[in-house]
Amino acid sequence: MKSIDYYEALAAQAERGELVSIGEVHRGEQSREATRQMLLTASGVASVEELLSGVRRGRRRLDDSETSTDTWKVKAPSRLTQIVDDHAHGLGKNRSEFVRDAVAYYLAALDEGPVSQQGRVHHSARR
C-alpha cells in the first residue's frame, strides 16, 4: 500500500504539470468502447452477453432441501487462513465453500457415508 506522502507528492507533480500521459485520452462513446474492449479482453470473452452470463447473482443455494442455514464463527491462526484461502482460490471456491466441503469430507472419513456426492451432509447424519 502506498503512503500518504506518495500521493501528496503525486498531487504536487500534477499541479506543477509534471505528469506525462501514458496513453490516449478517451471521452464519451470512445471511452465507453475502450472500456468495453478492456473488460472483454481481461475476462477472455467475446461479448458483453457472454461476460454477464458468467456473473453469479448472489450465492447459490447450499441444497434444494435446505430451508435454513447456520453461520459459524471460527477462530483460526492467520497462517491456516492463508492456506485455506490459497486452496479455495485454486479450486475456484470462496472460503465458506471450501470449509463446508472440508468439514463434510472430514465427517465422511470419520463416519464413512453421511455425505452426498456433492459433499453435503445427509439429513440422517445430523445429530
Rank of each mutant, 00 (worst) to 15 (best):
R57M: 00
A125V: 03
V99W: 07
H87W: 03
L10R: 09
V25C: 07
G17P: 01
R36D: 03
S65W: 04
S53L: 12
L10F: 08
S78V: 13
R79L: 10
S3R: 14
A34M: 02
G17I: 07
G44W: 01
G44I: 00
T71F: 00
A102L: 14
S3L: 06
Q118L: 14
S78L: 14
K93D: 00
K73Y: 03
E66F: 01
H122V: 08
S116G: 12
R57S: 10
K93F: 07
G44Q: 07
S65F: 08
G17H: 02
S78T: 13
V55S: 00
A46V: 05
Y106S: 13
L91A: 05
V103F: 01
T81H: 09
E33T: 06
A11E: 14
A109Q: 12
D70E: 11
R36T: 04
G54M: 03
D101G: 09
I4T: 13
R27N: 01
K93A: 06
T81G: 12
A104I: 02
E15A: 14
I22V: 13
M1G: 04
L110R: 15
A12E: 15
A42C: 02
G113R: 10
G44P: 01
T69W: 04
D86F: 09
S78E: 15
T71W: 02
P114D: 00
E49G: 12
Y6N: 09
V99N: 02
T69G: 05
A109D: 15
Y7V: 02
Q37Y: 01
R27F: 09
P114M: 06
R127E: 09
S78Q: 13
A108C: 11
Q37N: 03
V48N: 04
A108E: 15
L107I: 15
Y106I: 09
A102C: 10
A46C: 03
R56V: 05
S21I: 12
Q37G: 04
S96H: 02
R60T: 09
M1R: 09
H123A: 15
G17D: 01
